[in-house]
Computed example of a mutant assay.
Amino acid sequence: MCYFEQTRWTCGYWKWGNFRQQCPKEYRTGETCGLKLVYTTSYKSENCKLCEQIEKKNRRLEKLQRDVERWRQEGNRPATIEKTERDIEEIAERVNQLWEDHIGRQASIS
């Protein structure tokens, strides 16, 4: 039951901050008991880093998809289209992983 700072973003993502106060259960100086409680919460009005990464990757996906459509209309770049489609799949998979991490963190504290 040691107390820590907490940071929360508008999207609901949060993270633990610095140690603030030791609980009476822990008698060793500088040690914590292992149970974290919130001392203070600071609210950030911007998006968290995961949201920013997701936004960047989504913009990249949109650009790659527009490029593939343009190349298909031109009809002269089959190898480039194939490679770009693999890249699109990889980036989409990474976006899904980031969303899972984000949702998991949001659900872990209510």
Rank of each mutant, 00 (worst) to 15 (best):
C2Y: 02
Y3F: 08
T7V: 05
W9P: 11
C11R: 09
C11E: 05
C11G: 09
G12V: 02
W14E: 07
K15A: 05
G17A: 01
N18L: 03
Q21K: 05
C23V: 06
P24K: 14
K25Y: 00
R28I: 10
E31K: 01
E31D: 03
C33Q: 02
L37C: 08
L37S: 12
Y39E: 09
Y39N: 09
T40F: 06
T40C: 05
T40R: 13
S42I: 03
Y43S: 01
S45Q: 09
N47F: 12
N47Y: 12
C48A: 08
C51M: 08
Q53H: 06
E55W: 02
K56G: 15
K56I: 11
K57S: 07
R59E: 15
R59W: 11
L61P: 08
K63M: 04
L64N: 15
R66G: 03
R70E: 12
R70N: 13
W71I: 01
W71P: 07
Q73V: 03
G75P: 15
R77L: 01
P78K: 01
I81S: 13
I81Q: 12
T84P: 07
E85G: 12
R86P: 06
R86W: 05
E89A: 12
E90H: 12
I91G: 15
I91K: 14
R94I: 02
R94P: 03
N96I: 05
Q97H: 15
Q97A: 15
D101T: 14
H102L: 11
H102T: 09
I103F: 13
G104Y: 08
G104Q: 09
G104I: 03
G104H: 11
R105G: 03
R105Y: 01
R105W: 00
S108T: 08
S108C: 07
I109R: 14
I109Y: 14
S110M: 05
